[in-house]
C-alpha cells in the first residue's frame, strides 16, 4: 500500500500549487477557529481567573465540571448548536445556521471550557505565589486577576494555542452546523471528511498534512515568541 507516499505527494502538490480553492478553505479554517479562540479566550480567561482567585461555595464542583467539559464531544456540541440555530429552534429566527458564524459559535462553546480549565490551573499556581504580595500592595480581586493574567501571559498563550488546535482540528461540530457547503462553510476538516467519503484517501491525507503543517507553524511561532519573551522578561 503506497497511500502514505501518495499522500505526501498530494500534500506537496497542494502546497506548491496553492490554488484558490484550497486557499479559501484554509483561510476560512483560520478565520473561524481564530475568531472562536478569541471569543473563548475573552470568556474562558476571566472565568478561569475568577475561579483561581475567588473562594466560593461550589467552587470545587465548578472545577470538576470545567475539567469534564474539556472532553466535550464536538458532535454533541454541534448537535446542540444545530438544534438552537435551526429554524425550528429557539434561535432559528437569526437565520445563521450553515454560516461561518454558526461554526464560530460551536467551536467557541467547545473550547471555552478548555481555556477556562487550563488557565484556572495556571493562574491558581501563580496566585499561590502572588497572593500575599498583591494583597499587601492593595490589589483588589479584579486587579489581582488581571495582574496574574498579564504575568502568566506566555503560559496562557500556550493554552490559547491548545484551544486553537482543538478548534481547527475538530470536524464533528462544524460539519453539523456548517453543513460543509462548498465555498461557504467548507473548512480543512470537513474537506478532509468529504475526500475520505469520496475514497480519495491520498488527497484527504494530503489535506491533513497541510492542516498539520499550519498548526505546527503556528505553534513554532508561539514557541519562539515565548522563548524570546522569557529570555527578555525572566
Amino acid at each position: 500500500m503506497n497511500s502514505l507516499g501518495e499522500a505526501f505527494t498530494a500534500a506537496w502538490r497542494l502546497i506548491a500549487g496553492f490554488d484558490a480553492e484550497l486557499a479559501q478553505v484554509v483561510g476560512l479554517s483560520l478565520q473561524v477557529s481564530l475568531t472562536a479562540v478569541v471569543i473563548a479566550t475573552l470568556i474562558g480567561l476571566p472565568v478561569g481567573a475568577m475561579i483561581a482567585v475567588e473562594r466560593f461555595r461550589g467552587r470545587q464542583a465548578l472545577i470538576v465540571l470545567l475539567n469534564a467539559l474539556m472532553g466535550l464531544p464536538p458532535v454533541v456540541v454541534g448537535l446542540l448548536v444545530y438544534l438552537l440555530l435551526s429554524r425550528a429552534g429557539p434561535l432559528g429566527s437569526l437565520g445563521i445556521l450553515f454560516t461561518p458564524t454558526a461554526m464560530v459559535i460551536a467551536q467557541a462553546i467547545l473550547i471555552t471550557p478548555i481555556i477556562a480549565a487550563l488557565s484556572r490551573q495556571t493562574l491558581e499556581d501563580a496566585w499561590r505565589e502572588y497572593d500575599e504580595q498583591l494583597r499587601s500592595l492593595g490589589a483588589r480581586r479584579i486587579t489581582a486577576g488581571m495582574t496574574l493574567i498579564w504575568d502568566t501571559r506566555f503560559s496562557l498563550l500556550t493554552i490559547v494555542l491548545a484551544g486553537f488546535g482543538r478548534a481547527v482540528a475538530e470536524v464533528g461540530a462544524v460539519m453539523i452546523v456548517g453543513g460543509n457547503i462548498d465555498g461557504v462553510t467548507r473548512v480543512m476538516t470537513t474537506a478532509i471528511a468529504l475526500e475520505t467519503s469520496k475514497g480519495d484517501l491520498p488527497l484527504a491525507l494530503g489535506l491533513g498534512i497541510v492542516l498539520l503543517t499550519l498548526v505546527i507553524v503556528l505553534n513554532a511561532l508561539a514557541a519562539v515568541i515565548r522563548e524570546m519573551a522569557l529570555r527578555r522578561y525572566g
Binding site: Q133, R135, S136, W150, D151, Y233, G234
Partner: peptide, 20 residues
C-alpha cells in the same frame, strides 16, 4: 480593611517580582 493597609507596606523574604 484596605484603607488601614494603605498606611502600611511589607517586604517579603522572597519578594514577588512582577513580570515587567
Amino acid at each position: 480593611s484596605v484603607d488601614m493597609r494603605r498606611h502600611q507596606a511589607m517586604v517579603f523574604q522572597r519578594p514577588v517580582m512582577l513580570r515587567r
